[in-house]
Design a protein around this nucleic acid. Structure first.
Lengths: 197, 197
DNA sequence: TTTCATTGATTGATCAGTCAATCAAAACTA
DNA sequence: TAGTTTTGATTGACTGATCAATCAATGAAA
């Protein structure tokens, strides 16, 4: 077994296991032992590679963000218009992968952990800024910078709120969640066009 | 000191202290010792009155809910129209008391704890249903049951999302938060009226 | 003297983190 | 090639700290 080059494999297995464990329990209150067990290694090895539980968790948040970023880049590439770009971002946020029970629960747990761990807070505010800027790039040409700001802010809040509700088990199904955000944006754009015509 | 009738006083002091402690740390990961200390009593007394940490936390959630309900009832009493009732609910959600740093952080912490503790989950879904029904009672006469449902769902999600963002430190100020939700509702109502005329 | 309020001291369990030891592949040497 | 050394991977066993929960004891009003 002790072959060379295990490090990247174990690191990935451990961050995956951490997201899985945190998602399943719905809080960062999981033991290193639980995480390591899911990854098929001993707790000592998790410490060996990550140094501390905090660092393992930070790495897991980075993995989640990186995955979301990848999906978003992919979706934006396929979009053919400004309006399409906005819809693409929404679609990714509520895709089967990103809007799954476990991933949503993990996000919520990380939000709470951000109150305590500055590195997590920093990472999550990167996500918030990126979501905002992605929405703005599609909305600004359609509504002007000022109105776009307002619409993006409302849409982003609505997306976060739908995530919370998903985690709690209340809240609409995936399909209806997309419809709510799309409808918010569409109605806002309609109103602006109506006002200027 | 050992006078009779201390129980209700201590219970309130302890639930208040729990909300304060949880709000300050931003998670239910606070010790009984910390809570009891803030309430000016020993940890043993907290156990004496509540039996367990879980029960103290559940009582604290009930206190928070009860406070919010009181404010809402009060605000609804003063409202003079359906539209006014909707605005009253929003105003309460973002009042200085309910939208304070600590209270918002406590809410978020309780949401996460709901994943683990069924009683907390039950209490929070009571809140979600009450918010929904309050919004519906104002919106249904204005937009019909079907459209009101959609608007209320979007508004509720947006409110929750703005709470998360408040907790994370990103997100708009209190005044802008109100404006976003009001604008969402107003624009939706406008669009419906425009459609039917 | 009964009853309620209160706490110090203690227990038992849980966990993050450490460390020395083991093992086997890989690299080196003659 | 065969033997030797180095190096990375891995873990069992342990430690120290933290904390919820318990309980017997104290004290003072009723």
């Amino acid at each position: 077994m002790p072959k060379i080059g295990m490090e990247p494999i174990r690191r990935k297995a451990l961050t995956d296991a951490a997201i899985e464990a945190i998602g399943a329990r719905g809080s960062i209150d999981v033991t290193m032992s639980d995480i390591a067990g899911r990854a098929g290694v001993s707790p000592a090895l998790a410490h060996h590679y990550f140094g501390s539980k905090d660092q393992l968790i930070a790495a897991s948040v980075r993995a989640l963000l990186s995955d979301l970023r990848g999906d978003t880049v992919q979706a934006l590439k396929a979009a053919r218009s400004n309006r399409g770009r906005v819809s693409a971002i929404i679609a990714v946020s509520f895709s089967d992968k990103q809007f799954s029970e476990d991933v949503v629960a993990a996000w919520l747990a990380f939000y709470v952990d951000a109150q305590r761990a500055t590195e997590i807070r920093r990472l999550l505010s990167v996500y918030a800024r990126r979501l905002h800027s992605n929405l703005m790039s599609g909305l600004t040409p359609l509504a002007g910078a000022h109105e776009a700001e307002r619409i993006a802010e409302g849409a982003a809040a609505m997306i976060d709120g739908l995530y919370i509700r998903k985690a709690l088990g209340t809240g609409p199904a995936r399909h209806d969640a997309v419809a709510l955000v799309e409808d918010h944006i569409e109605t806002q754009l309609l109103e602006i066009r109506g006002r200027t015509v």
